[in-house]
C-alpha cells in the first residue's frame, strides 16, 4: 500500500510540473495547466501524507 502511495505521489509531482513545461512549449492552454496542477496538488498531499507523515 505504502509503495503504491509512494509511486502515485511521485507521478503526481511529475504531473504537477509537466503542464507548465507543455505550456512553455505552446502545447497546452493555461486553463488546462491550472486544472491539472490542482488535481496533482490534491493527489500529492493525499498520497504523500500516507508515507511521509510518520517520518521524523
Amino acid at each position: 500500500m505504502i509503495l503504491v502511495a509512494k509511486l502515485i505521489s511521485w507521478i503526481s509531482l511529475v504531473a504537477l510540473i509537466a503542464p507548465a513545461i507543455l505550456f512553455l512549449m505552446g502545447r497546452m492552454e493555461l486553463d488546462q495547466v491550472k486544472m491539472v496542477m490542482l488535481i496533482s496538488t490534491v493527489v500529492w498531499f493525499v498520497t504523500a501524507a500516507m508515507w511521509m507523515w510518520g517520518k521524523e
Binding site: L13, L16, P19, L24, V33, T41
Partner: peptide
C-alpha cells in the same frame, strides 16, 4: 513541521511552474 516537509517538494515545483508560465 511535518506538513511543511510534505509541502516542500511540491512548493519547489510550483515555484518552478511560476517561472515557466511567466516566461511563456
Amino acid at each position: 513541521a511535518k506538513f511543511a516537509n510534505i509541502a516542500a517538494p511540491w512548493m519547489v515545483l510550483v515555484f518552478l511552474a511560476f517561472g515557466l508560465i511567466g516566461l511563456r
